[in-house]
Write a protein that binds this DNA or RNA. Structure first.
Lengths: 104, 104
DNA sequence: CCAAGTGTTCGATCTACTTCGTACACTCAT
DNA sequence: ATGAGTGTACGAAGTAGATCGAACACTTGG
């Protein structure tokens, strides 16, 4: 990796609706969120998601997801592992996550 | 106007989540939906919305809102009047409309 | 019939986003 | 140490979306 610093997170409470909607309106990010929803917390590193983009784009998408309060990340060794911020996001945007997870 | 044809509508049931989210993730369209939510049905023609864009862009946004199953339009004389598809949209995307309307 | 009002369509422009390649930084296993 | 694995930063390129001006089509009121 290239992070001497921990990733910057935004709490869902500080996220505008527009930002949340825009974050979820992308097929790659939606795919990540869905995969994440069926995985155990902190079990998936960024590289383990089945999305058709390169590393750079993937890294960008995770930044967007963090900024939207959807994903939390921790560094474990060389890997950056993820967790879906279910409760926090649900508290800020009730039903939204359920809405996008219900499909497919 | 310039419609010998009635506007094409898409039922919310036929709308992908992504499309709905993308439609609501724009400030102008969000503004339109919110204004519409506090207006009586069929009471507002397209030109009566307080948004900072020209006619052409406005027309485009209404097309997007129709395609997202958010708005229904009818021609009355020279005007095209609108209605928010509350129930239908709510049935397809439970809670989503409430989410964006609750704010502001 | 004409002029004004209303909304669409077309093309061009402008901006934002997505993506990629490369270079870099860090960790771990050997 | 050294190399392989992992993710970020940066610049460039491509793409999609938003906006505008102008031309057009239709309706209505005079």
């Amino acid at each position: 990796m290239s992070h001497r610093t921990a990733p910057e997170h935004t709490h869902p409470d500080d996220v505008p609706v527009e930002t949340a909607l825009a974050a979820l309106a992308d097929p790659v990010r939606l795919s990540i969120v869905r995969e994440l929803s069926t995985s155990e917390e902190w079990s998936r590193s960024c590289g383990t998601f089945d999305v058709p983009v390169g590393k750079a784009a993937l890294s960008h998408h995770f930044a967007v997801l963090r900024a939207a309060g959807l994903v939390e990340q921790r560094d474990i060794g060389a890997k950056r592992v993820n967790r879906l911020r279910r409760e926090e996001f649900e508290h800020r945007f009730p039903g939204l996550l359920a809405l996008v997870l219900r499909e497919e």
